[in-house]
Amino acid sequence: MRLTEIRVAGFGGQGVILSAMVIGKAACIYENGYATLTQNFGPEARGSACSAQVILSDQPILYPYVVRPDILIAMSQEAYTRFTPELKEGGLLLVEQDLVRISDLPAGIRAYSVPATRLAEELGKRMVLNIVMVGCFAGVTGLLDPEALRRAVADSVPPGSKELNLRAFEKGLEYGRAKVGPLAEYPDAEPAIRAIEGLS
């Protein structure tokens, strides 16, 4: 895997850091890659801005910070507004559909809108929307082995919510693989996924 910079951003309390942890752990513990995760530490608490950065690579990572992300997962309007401009040209943007209204999308960004909150609600718990987003990230990018991500989810969440989170992951993965298409407003955006036959 070439060096890939990822930023996950949203509100404190949404599980932003946990989703970044799952991605990093899958890459370096359950696959043979390297991962470096950093967080924006500040006087942030539940409900305010929160962001985590993961760098993935097949080589040891030297420079510790994300500079121009290849991928942005935005789970709040503020996160979208603040971090979209730093995305690399040709970068990938995943947003939570009900929390982010896309406007002024820079040219050359592949943007996908994911109804993660609604998918999480179908499972009975809105709070697993972060893991739905991780599943969707896996489906859209194909960057990491889904099995590695499953194992990372399983040992990153509290034992009592393991099954729920694994279901959330599968839901996101399936959605990412099959249903995510370019945003209607941006029909020229390059589709990043191969639709799986048989799934509607």
Binding site: I29, Y34, A35, T36, L37, T38, F41, I61, P64
Partner: peptide, 10 residues
């Protein structure tokens, strides 16, 4: 330092 302290790796 803060960077090493708050950086997560294997």
């Amino acid at each position: 330092d803060e960077c090493v302290g708050h950086m997560t790796e294997k």
